[in-house]
Design a protein around this nucleic acid. Sequence first.
RNA 1: GUGGCUAUGGUGUAGCGGUAGCACAACAGGUUGUGGUCCUGUUAGCACGGGUUCGAUUCCCGUUAGCCACCCCA
Length: 454
Amino acid sequence: MSKNPKETEEKEPKPTLKDLRTPKGVHDILPDDHEFYTYLKKVIRHRARQSGYRRITTPTFEFTDVFKRSIGDTSDIVSKEMYSFEDRKGRSLTLKPEGTAGVVRSYLQHNMQTWPQPVELYYIEPHFRYDRPQKGRYRQFWQFGFEVLGETDPAIDAQIIQLFKVILEDLGVADLFTLQINSIGCMNKNCRPHFIEDLRNYYMGKERSMCEECQTRLEKNPLRLLDCKEEDCIILAKLAPQMKDYLCEECKEFHEELLKLLEGLGIEYVENQKLVRGLDYYTKTVFEFWSASTGAQNAIGGGGRYDGLVEKMGGQPTPAIGFAAGMERIIDTMKEAGITVPTKDDIHVFVAQLGFTAKQKALKLMNELRNVGIKCVGALGKGAIKNQLRVADRFAVPYTVIMGITEVRDGTAIIRDMKRGSQKIVKYDKVLEELIEVLGEDQLDRYSPEEVLY
RNA sequence: GUGGCUAUGGUGUAGCGGUAGCACAACAGGUUGUGGUCCUGUUAGCACGGGUUCGAUUCCCGUUAGCCACCCCA
């Protein structure tokens, strides 16, 4: 440090950085928040691995058609929430607004139908939607999700729901959510299409008492008519035909079986006729986990079966189910519930030094400490011992190693117990083992290549 | 896309039509190589643009941003 910081007198007008903030709806994840993200990711990976899911990362952007063709033109996501742009050759690309489309595209592109079925994948990635931000809703947000492709059985549905439930339990927030579940049938003529036809007929001619949006819904996405929040529309919806009365035999059986399986697993659910979800590709099972405490954004995660999607995207008919959850919303809930998260960011040892030779030795020592798993920092720029110890205190380290001129001369170092305020002088080459001794083997942060890190 | 609320140092906040305090944080000291407490000091602010006014941080309008809600979902 220079002794006269006042020497830097001339004050050039600095450019203002007020314009250089994050764009609307996106945020930095600062260290304190990362403790939550890291923990959450760890739980997800652990549980996914246990269940045989393997991780996939699809690109952050894809051709716009990947999303248009899967999610559906009339969905809110595609019609008004996508971050689309043209590249230098005029191709339309889009930042991924959700995870399933990319996974299915990848399944086809890499011929995963030749893998042992079902293919079970999970992802943890940022997603992007252009929407007005508010609590629990951001333009870039983290989602994790699971997809199971190539198998149709209600047991798969039950298992994926259970998997999410278990993760919520691990995080200590499972009790704060309810599982909402519904079946929206399949594409067989006598199932959903029949229902939609009757639904249209029911609403036809009643346009005058419907809100503007519902009038377009009638055209493009009649299922959504049922959960409109406008007063008049709610009244209309009450007498409207109900999907459950239209389910084909297969869908009906499937759904009943799923509910039984959930009961067998002790998973409580609420049957919700109005749950239809905003993506076009769902069939049969749809579900969401709802929270009471995340403001208006009460859906913390959701998913469903999409038996028609792989075929729709150009593959062989392949049944599949998926699920995704919002990490910000889960973390919000954890914070509100007062849940704290274990962290490994704490520092074991601070190395204080005085004089150039000591600094040299300190640098060397710190590297050695780190190699045996002792997390350490040193104030390599700070001059006075006093200041260095103050910094050590701020790191809340249990021990500080002090090396000054005397210690360098004697070939020793001081190990100071910060809590007791006591210290002892040890030979320099005994510092390592002394610290391991007082910290305890099990506290060390050792890196082992065998450790599973992905 | 629509609506509501808000905008004071890094953070959290007071305040008044006559240009701003406080707390925390940061930084520096409290003699010679020892932290946390304490004491002292320093740094740093009225989002931007317009209007009303002798004068605006304070009142009005606009912009921008943030938050919340609608909508939709994660």
